[in-house]
């Protein structure tokens, strides 16, 4: 029988000093591995031109400037499709795609989680299975279907598939399972509230963390979307694609491209910082039982 350590009548879990030290070392090493490239991209974006092509290269900028950010905006103004157009495309796709996804997926999640109806379980397990394969598998045949629906080279080619994003529906359904008590819904139904009403006025306000998670996930993937095989027109392409074009402009633009990368990544990172606790709460019910 092990010695049981207690403090103020509470059990103290046994933690060896060696274990603590080892874990700290591994964590710090992994942390450095994760953070160094991030620091480097920020440092690159702040280097003046002569430092970008200095030998030997320095990891950190010696005399940081915001010239690269200024260059980026000049480059943007010079492109033949105005840059505001690319930004509009990305924002439009992200917002419409995310809002549509939120309503369509949460409506379906509510029915699957809280109404017992023939076929519900089967539909959910089919949707869940689709988490198991990557969407590249369907990219070629989706193209055929989209051209049959006349969606190729329109905003809808990006937006409508995003409405059907599986992970969002899955997380919402799981969260509703555990966070919306059946008794509350039952009493609302007895009071004569319609399903649509219980969904919107009772269930939805109870699952705000899941909303935020859905919004963040969907927004992230749409915001980071690069060139799509479904879009040809320059006028419909995304901001991320346009940044890729700047980067492809060669060594002269190394600084501007680093600046663009930093600007692009700020948005999802800030959104995550604000909503982190909600996302982690949603993930608490993400588990799969079987």
């Amino acid at each position: 029988m092990a010695r049981l350590r207690t403090r103020k009548h509470k059990v103290v879990l046994s933690r060896s000093v060696g274990g603590d030290a080892g874990i700290t070392v591994i964590l710090v090493l992994l942390g450095i591995f994760m953070v160094l490239p991030m620091v480097y991209v920020i440092s690159q974006s702040l280097k003046p031109l002569d430092e970008l092509w200095m030998y030997p290269p320095r990891f950190l900028a010696q005399s940081p400037t915001i010239d690269n950010y200024r260059d980026l905006f000049t480059l943007m103004n010079d492109s033949w499709v105005p840059f505001s157009r690319y930004i509009f495309n990305t924002v439009f796709n992200s917002v419409v795609g995310t809002l549509g996804h939120l309503f369509i997926a949460s409506m379906c999640a509510y029915a699957l989680a809280k109404i017992k109806f023939p076929g519900g379980k089967f539909i959910f397990s089919t949707i869940r299975t689709s988490l198991m394969f990557h969407s590249t598998v369907t990219s070629i045949t989706s193209f055929i279907l989209m051209s049959a629906l006349n969606m190729i080279d329109t905003y809808w080619a990006v937006i409508v598939p995003a409405w059907g994003y599986t992970l969002g529906l899955y997380l919402m359904k799981q969260f509703m399972d555990t966070h919306v008590p059946d008794t509350v819904l039952e009493s609302a139904r007895l009071d004569g509230a319609s399903e649509l009403r219980t969904y919107w006025t009772i269930a939805m306000p109870m699952v705000k963390p899941a909303w935020l998670t859905l919004i963040i996930y969907s927004f992230q993937s749409l915001w980071n979307a690069g060139s799509s095989i479904y879009i040809y027109s320059e006028q419909l392409k995304s901001f991320n694609y346009a940044i890729g074009q700047i980067t492809a402009g060669g060594i002269k633009r190394a600084g501007a491209s680093a600046a663009a990368t930093v600007l692009m990544m700020l948005v999802p990172i800030l959104m995550f910082v604000i909503t982190q606790s909600n996302i982690v709460e949603t993930m608490g019910s993400s588990g799969m039982k079987d």
């Binding site: 997926a105 409506m107 029915a111 109404i115 519900g120 045949t141 409405w163 399903e195």
Partner: peptide
């Protein structure tokens, strides 16, 4: 439970069109 089918209809249509049918 006809309402349930109504609620899942939009999602299921999109899911069918862009995931099940392509597979």
């Amino acid at each position: 439970n006809w309402v349930a089918y109504l609620l899942i209809l939009p999602y299921v249509l999109i899911f069918t069109a862009f995931t099940i049918l392509p597979v």
